[in-house]
């Protein structure tokens, strides 16, 4: 096991704790909506994208139709296009056939933490780091879902409250350590303030649309 893989595992610890909490919430929601327990776990195994999975459950419970569920799940996951585009230059040396397997594990967290690590110029192999991170976060997501569907109803609220804070605090610290230029600070600031506003108007699309708009705007202004 390489040291870069181990660094990824270490970085993935906080993501993993958050994923257990988030996917436990998904497991409980799916179970309450009447989704078979195994189907809920299968969703996490195959889809591995919390927001899309929550949307699928909501639409499935409301409409009872298969096609709208698939459409909403895929549409919410459109952001993966941008994430894979951003990871492409970082994983330039990785053979394509290897990436065709590992791309399945790209999520907002595995993408962002790897992206921030690659900017630190510490000589880390970003792909090994990504694999370590995925090892922890994917296992945590599947375990969290299983706990949620089978045992989730009896867990204390305070535990859930604390666990959901790992991700926002972790990303705040990453941003604070990673922002180097004024234009980057502006991009982060705009993302912070605009995302909730767009989410109200277009639920599920805020992060994706704001990020694209901010990227285009700041590049243009910085030019």
């Amino acid at each position: 096991m390489s040291s870069d893989f181990q660094s990824g595992v270490k970085a993935g610890t906080s993501v993993g704790i958050t994923f257990v909490a988030i996917f436990m919430g998904f497991g409980i929601t799916a179970s309450l909506a009447g989704t078979p327990n195994l189907a809920a776990v299968l969703m996490t195994v195959i889809v591995f994208a919390g927001p899309a999975q929550f949307a699928m459950i909501e639409v499935g419970a409301q409409t009872g139709l298969l096609l709208p569920v698939i459409s909403v799940g895929v549409l919410v996951n459109l952001r993966f296009l941008v994430m894979s585009m951003a990871l492409n230059p970082i994983f330039e040396s990785v053979p394509r056939r290897v990436l065709l397997f590992w791309a399945q594990f790209i999520s907002a967290s595995s993408f962002l933490v790897t992206f921030f690590e690659s900017r630190k110029d510490r000589g880390t192999d970003p792909f090994e780091f990504f694999k370590g991170l995925v090892f922890v976060s994917y296992s945590a997501a599947v375990a969290g879902t299983a706990i949620g569907v089978w045992f989730g109803h009896g867990l204390p609220n305070l535990l859930g409250f604390g666990a959901t804070l790992f991700l926002p605090i972790y990303f705040s610290l990453l941003i604070s350590s990673d922002v180097r230029k004024r234009s980057e600070l502006i991009a982060a600031g705009l993302g912070f303030f605009l995302t909730p506003l767009v989410e109200i108007v277009l639920p599920g699309w805020g992060i994706f649309l704001v990020a694209l708009a901010v990227g285009l705007l700041v590049v243009r202004v910085a030019e």
Partner: peptide, 26 residues
């Protein structure tokens, strides 16, 4: 540069969503 700004905006958006939103409402 574009992808860097996009990544920072995504990270910041995740933070503000987690802090200020429940479901699709502030």
């Amino acid at each position: 540069a574009f992808l860097t700004y996009v990544s920072l905006a995504i990270a910041a958006g995740i933070v503000s969503k987690a802090l200020f939103m429940r479901g699709s409402q502030i």
